[in-house]
Design a protein around this nucleic acid. Sequence first.
DNA 1: CCATTACGATACAGTGATGTATCCAAACTC
DNA 2: GAGTTTGGATACATCACTGTATCGTAATGG
Lengths: 227, 227
Amino acid sequence: MSAAADPTIPPSARRQATRERLFDAAMAVFVEDGVQGASVEAICARADFTRGAFYSNFDSKEQLFQALLEREFMRRARYVQSQAVAIEPRLREHGRQFTPEEAAGLIADFFIFEATLTDNDATAWFVLETEFLLLAMRDPALAPDYHQFMEGFYTDLAPVVEQVVAAAGRRFTLPVELAVPILGGLYHRALRNTALAGTEAPGGLGDLGADLASLLFALTDEIAPRG
Amino acid sequence: MSAAADPTIPPSARRQATRERLFDAAMAVFVEDGVQGASVEAICARADFTRGAFYSNFDSKEQLFQALLEREFMRRARYVQSQAVAIEPRLREHGRQFTPEEAAGLIADFFIFEATLTDNDATAWFVLETEFLLLAMRDPALAPDYHQFMEGFYTDLAPVVEQVVAAAGRRFTLPVELAVPILGGLYHRALRNTALAGTEAPGGLGDLGADLASLLFALTDEIAPRG
DNA sequence: CCATTACGATACAGTGATGTATCCAAACTC
DNA sequence: GAGTTTGGATACATCACTGTATCGTAATGG
């Protein structure tokens, strides 16, 4: 029997703290060694615990990973939703109309900040997300979770993007449910290149704004000014 | 000392055959259990060998994986290049001009066939490629290999796509080096959804043609017929 | 045919990780 | 401040996997 995670009883502050420390340690170790490659021992060592603490809080490495993802997903979901309400006044208080380049810049910034929500390290989260994808593709039980997160992310993001685009006097010429993942694909590519290159590389996060601008321009047309 | 891979001495037919069997087995096991999760033992068992055969042919699981990737990359590089020369007469012998939908269908077919080059299983290769990405992001020594393959793939693909697009009386309104990876992103997304859903799902390989058509239309404009 | 080599099987020693059962200390309870 | 509970440390038994050293056999060639 495991005292690991009884959701009926709220965890004490002490317990909560050790869990957070284990989460942070696990995050780092998972990124470095992979979920499969990481040993429980290594995670505990990085968090300055022994395995006793681990097994007192979690049933297995996999369960820890799942809980960790939940934490990170929550952070991001909250972030997107906060942007959804924050963007409107920001656009309104902007005096003149945005240029398409500025709109693309806003979207690029959104993406980049989303990635750095944890650890201030864009590639760390990307690696973890890729690990999760891999697990989900193998384990049918996990697949819906992954799909749901992605779907939810883009669904929440769509109106934000649409507003920004509208603030630049444009609108998508294809369904926004298709357009937003396409923009996301470009971001994905930039993240990958950045992760591969360590820091700076062609097609890295630096060029994301420019590329997004080109794409955004192609995917939208001008709203008839009036009449 | 390992008799594993002396490139100076060409391997005997027997040796070649066992290597192929180990490759095929490794492919399956890697997809099922992941590269880290796969044991040498499991690979050998699936290939009906003992570990003796393995260590006689390879130094380590990692080296086997690298050799396996090389095999698969070669296949795909050959495929793209074969299409590059095969597409022109195919377009020419087609009587009338292609519609944008037909052009998108050609590109979708190209992508899908590329994925199924091995094992006739689109998702297997996708999983393996994702594993490689993960390894490359961790190991700076591998990063250039991954990047080079991707880069090379899209570089070779670009003229093919451009020809197909031209056969539909259109041309890209943004740099083709940007447009082709964007198309690839859509394909990537479809693959992911398919892998996650097992068989059929919204956004799966079935819808790829239609989505590609929409995107292709947005990224291109009509070539002035004449005059 | 016999000798030799190539190649895979077998056996073994070593290692690192896992999960559990038990113990000990600090933190609440009254 | 004694009793109780909570939470993490320690110690232990087990196991899967690894790599190597050796052996047996099937292919090869003269």
